[in-house]
Amino acid sequence: MPTKLKKSLIYWAFLSPLVVIILFPFAVMFVTAVRPRDELFVYPPRWGFSEFRWGNFAEMWVKTNFGEALFNSLYVSVLSTVLALVLSIPAAYALSRYRFRGKGAYRTFLLMTQMMSPIVLVLGLFRLMVAFGMVDNLNSLVLTYAAFNMAFTIWMLQSYFSTIPRDLEEAAWIDGASHLNSLIRIFLPLAVPAMAVTAIFSFINGWNEFVLALTMIRSSDDFTLPVQIYSQVAGRYQVEWHHVMAGTVLATVPVAIVFSWLQKYLIRGMALGAVK
């Protein structure tokens, strides 16, 4: 056997327990989502089922008001990502290019905010949103998600920005560009990979967030996907597991696929600035 193949096999053997742990919930989710309702609870449990029912998805879509929750999730994730980026880019640019008083303290502050769990702050945030009159309003989530992501996005963008040679902007100034012009025409096009990575990260955070969404949103019309799926389970006499699982599949699989496709960029982005 060629050594390279042998090596690959050994690596996969080591990785296989992890693969099983990661894929098992997906497998359960999927087989539950597509089996008929009366085969949900059989003993002993088995993987097989008599009928492959795609219809579960359509039923679930209507019954659980999935479309609206999907729209809410998209709204919150996209807007919070855009807001976080719009505010992080100038902050990261300033951190990487200018010297100013309190720069070190600001960076430490950003790092400290990452050390606190959002759950600790959830009560305070709720009261803040009450004061703003924004409870039961999706925009409260847009604001809080953007705020929580910004520490990471600023940090990440700043480390990438620092790898873009200052000479390029200086050359643009000498060529006759204003600061704004050189930022738009030279700097930002070069920073696109980092912005893409931070956008993906921020989007996924918003998409998966549960605790804040559960706290801030009261009416079921405004539920995001995680809360909507949770509401199909919690406090019910009868849980329609095949619908819950169909919803979970629809909520996670597309994002998982996109994420695994983009993860090489994400890892490359995270490693940026580590080695000059």
């Binding site: 040679p165 000479d167 390029l168 200086e170 050359a171 100034w173 000498i174 560009a177 204003s178 070069l190």
Partner: peptide, 20 residues
Amino acid sequence: IPPRDRDIAMVFQNYALYPH
């Protein structure tokens, strides 16, 4: 006077060509 209004041209050590 800012660089853009000085009417100078500069060649940098690492060339500073716009890569995109």
